[in-house]
Design a protein around this nucleic acid. Structure first.
Lengths: 192, 192
DNA sequence: TTTCATACTAGACACTGTCAAGTATGAATA
DNA sequence: TATTCATACTTGACAGTGTCTAGTATGAAA
């Protein structure tokens, strides 16, 4: 793994860690190995992130920020578009996504700026569902539908990414087609 | 953590590991700690499972077997019932579920008996979807709907288990109610 | 010129999974 | 009865890990 060493170390460490997370999963990240690859001492990365949880929090924060951007970019395509965007984000940013959704790696609670980015992404979904359901929807309805849509996107994303879904359903025309169809099924049950 | 030490070691190790997975996640499982808790040498567990991946495969196999049983028990309630059963299984057997769905912990491919149990559970879902869609459904339709239903169940399960969903949606009447409603939304879009 | 924060390096510690080799025991076999 | 052999361990060593502590170089601020 070679990296442009002219970058400040913080950025290098983050990039290498995300790449390992993408290729081998977050558990394969060894900060000592990252340090070796970057050509610095084994403690250098810890200066920037405090501890192992700190680097996961930084990856998660960056990931949620990117997710918000992806959701906003697909804002005009309605709930179905956001659901699709969520799944595609997960596949395209697997390194970030795997970390974002692993609460055991770091308790985001302790990293307010990460919580801020996560809340921002969640609120985009909540607003989209709220406006899709219309003015007379109850708070309960909004929450139920939000949970439903998020579940569809999150489930499909994790099954495609780390689960056996793609293999089980092999022969299906195309993953991209599958994502679109599933997202459309998800919105088929919603009022219009 | 105290355990009935009269049990054969293999069973003890499995139970302790599943309990740790439930309480702290699979990554917190240290076979040396399990051995200490069981009062045996640090290598004793390896005799039964080969290596760390072996114990995860054993947990996954047991988990998929229990999942099949849970799906069969709810077989009469249709797709919605199976989706509900999936989510409830995940919450009730969090120790198993967390391991089953973590492909990075062990490549199930190398453990044929685990693959057998996983396939069995998957086929139960596939059959339920097939019979729900009726005789004229195309293979593509069946696969798409299977992916959809599995995504809903899997997404809700993982979000409730390790994600921020329960906190985000706090104020919602009851997790059990949420599960039922989401499962019903999932089947609302299916032909009847 | 001194003070001080930043960005590291260096060494040690406890802990981990794994490899290799040894031991006790009970059943099967000659 | 004596030997063989698989089972179920124990013991010791090794490299690798995250983290704690302490030290060092450097450039800006006072």
């Amino acid at each position: 793994m070679s990296v442009a060493t002219s970058d400040p170390l913080r950025r290098v460490v983050l990039d290498v860690a995300v790449a390992i997370s993408r290729d081998e999963g977050p558990d394969a990240i060894s900060l000592r190995k990252v340090a070796r690859d970057a050509g610095v001492s084994h403690q250098a990365p810890y200066h920037h992130f405090g501890d192992r949880a700190g680097i996961f929090a930084a990856i998660a924060e960056e990931g949620f920020s990117k997710l918000s951007a992806a959701l906003i970019a697909n804002h005009n395509d309605g709930i179905s578009g956001m659901c699709e965007a969520y799944v595609r984000f997960a596949l395209e940013h697997a390194g970030h996504f795997r970390v974002m959704m692993r609460n055991d790696l770091c308790d985001l609670q302790n990293y307010p700026s990460a919580v801020f980015q996560a809340d921002r992404a969640f609120n985009l979904l909540l607003e989209a569902v709220t406006s899709a359901l219309g003015n007379y929807a109850t708070d309960d309805d909004i929450k139920t539908h939000t949970a439903f849509i998020w579940s569809v996107g999150h489930g499909l994303a994790t099954l495609l990414l780390d689960g056996p879904l793609e293999k089980k359903l092999e022969g299906i025309a195309d993953v991209n087609v599958l994502i679109s169809r599933v997202a459309r099924l998800a919105t088929a049950s919603m009022p219009r």
